[in-house]
């Protein structure tokens, strides 16, 4: 619609100019000719714009599917909610816990919110396990398995940071630091869900387990939670936010896209593989 309006406006402008120059009104055939010229020009410009857009799009790779990005989003919301409602229980003597429970929300509300967070975490865990069964998930879990190469990548990377070696190790789809974080998350979620369920359903837990198991679960829940939160605000914050490459935020996990530049820098082996696959596909 906008294009036809544009086309009509340009046609009328051109007609007006021509009429002034010729000092006579254009006849129907001439007008038709002007209209065709305008249309052809607009079409050309539109095609050029699409080409430019396509060219910029090519600079990006799709790193994560929308499904995967959504998993991360739900996970992030649940973990933030769990931390906000869990920390004041662990540090109940602190002034901020006191403030929270006396002025913001009651302990009972806090428990409810913590359980909402826990439900989201369990939901995303089940969702993720289901996703791992899909073609995409099966490929990713293979890529995520720890390999001996990861250890040597780590050593090589430290050497590179220290300046002992001049070459950065080449990472595949998942670098050792990403694999480490993934498996730390898997382990942490397993511990938190297992111990958390015992605390949530303590009535049932106390019927089947000795009290000392319950006490261990409580202590592990508290310890693992603090470890996870500290890992998030150091390791994860650095890799996803404060690292100069991506500061202030690495949007890849939200948009699923990664630039060609970062792809070549951060995942050169995956980049090479994708390029090989594309070349093969084109040959066929």
């Amino acid at each position: 619609m906008a294009e036809s309006v544009n086309e009509e406006r340009l046609t009328q402008e051109l007609r007006h100019e021509l009429e002034q120059e010729l000092d006579r009104p254009l006849d129907e055939a001439e007008l038709q000719r002007v209209r065709e010229l305008v249309r052809a020009q607009l079409r050309k410009e539109l095609a050029a714009k699409r080409r430019r857009e396509a060219a910029t799009e090519e600079e990006y790779f799709v790193r994560f599917s929308r499904n995967f990005c959504l998993q991360h989003l739900v996970l992030a919301i649940s973990v933030i909610l769990l931390a906000i409602t869990g920390l004041p229980i662990k540090f109940h003597d602190s002034a901020w816990a006191e403030f929270l429970f006396r002025h913001i929300w009651s302990l009972e509300t806090n428990r409810l919110l913590h359980r909402v967070g826990a439900s989201l975490l369990m939901l995303v865990a089940v969702w993720h396990i289901g996703w791992l069964m899909t073609r995409e998930g099966r490929r990713d879990i293979r890529e995520l398995l720890p390999r001996v190469k990861d250890f040597w990548d780590f050593v090589a990377h430290v050497k590179f940071m220290l300046g002992i070696s001049a070459e950065r190790p080449k990472f595949g789809r998942y670098s050792y630091s990403e694999k480490f974080e993934y498996w730390a998350l898997v382990w942490g979620t397993a511990v938190m869900v297992l111990t958390g369920l015992m605390l949530w359903f303590h009535g049932i837990a106390l019927a089947y387990f000795p009290k000392y198991i319950f006490d261990i679960a409580l202590q592990a829940h508290s310890g693992e939670a603090l470890l996870a939160i500290l890992a998030l605000i150091t390791w994860h914050m650095y890799h996803a936010h404060f690292n100069p490459d991506v500061f202030p935020i690495n949007m890849t996990i939200f948009t699923g896209k990664i630039s060609k530049k970062r792809m070549i820098e951060e995942h050169p082996l995956e980049y090479e593989q994708i390029m090989r696959e594309r070349a093969e596909a084109e040959q066929q």
Binding site: H202, G203, I204, L206, A207, Y208, F209, P210, K211, Y212
Partner: peptide, 12 residues
């Protein structure tokens, strides 16, 4: 805790 069993005595 209506489900509490003798398990509650097993621990400090």
């Amino acid at each position: 805790h209506p489900n509490a069993s003798s398990n509650v005595a097993r621990g400090r």
